[in-house]
Amino acid sequence: MNFAIVSAIEQGLLFAIMVLGVYLTFRILDFPDLTVDGSFALGGAIAATLIIDGMNPFLATLIAMAGGAIAGTFTGLLTTKGKINGLLAGILVMISLYSINLRIMGKKSNLPLLREETLYSKTQALSIPDITFGGITWLTGEAIIFLVMVLLIKFLIDWFLHTDLGLDIRATGDNSRMIRSFGANTDTTTIIGLALSNALVAVSGAFIAQYQGFADVGMGIGMIVVGLASVIIGEVLFGAKSIMRVTLAVVLGSVVYRLVIAFALQAGLEATDMKLITAFLVILALVLPNIMKRALKMGKTVKGG
């Protein structure tokens, strides 16, 4: 049981980078970007292939990130310059990436990394002590490194969203007509936002491949729903008052999501049921606040007479 929780936290932190990417498109740009399913696997595929070829895993992860940025740029170009509906543009790039990822992986659907030196094996080699309290391990040494890294990315995103360019990107999602009238090219801001988002998603895919010890061509399937679930759970549980608050909330949302999945597995559900659980979680997180609001209102009217 304890092991399940500890590894859920580790996974939650690594997936949190993907969730931050989904937050950028879904909330900041107001753009439901389905590229995510493809760019997550793209990150895993690029990192695994390069690591097997003997490249330094750090460099391989950086190249995976660039790959994600290119994928996002394509989606951005299709929707802005090509005037293709955003959902469809994402689907088109996602489906193209499925073939591209197989090409990258040398037409193998699975690349094992078990005997390779990865960022995960390097992290383990640091042998940072676990945080244990009351005889229970709460955070492994690896998780501490992951946490520091995720927080670093979170603070970078916070800073970026408060720069002049970041304000333009936020305004593009908030009121695109207004920001055009102040001289921003909303095509450019949309493309930058999508590139940045998918770069984060691909990095997350690269980390997960190294963490689980293999890249799989299907590892990105349903990733957008996982991302949305984590964003929404995070916002509902931890609040969305300011940018800095939300970025922290969605990171925590990612961890909570993994914990819920771990408990569901513990309770006897199969790994194959997880997509259903995920969809159920999203529905719950979206519907529950509305029901609670209504209940609260009704309570007030009754009291008010």
């Binding site: 408060h162 720069t163 002049d164 360019l165 970041g166 304000l167």
Partner: peptide
């Protein structure tokens, strides 16, 4: 009318 870069807004 200015170029938007990475200075704080």
């Amino acid at each position: 009318g200015k170029k938007r870069r990475l200075g704080l807004g």
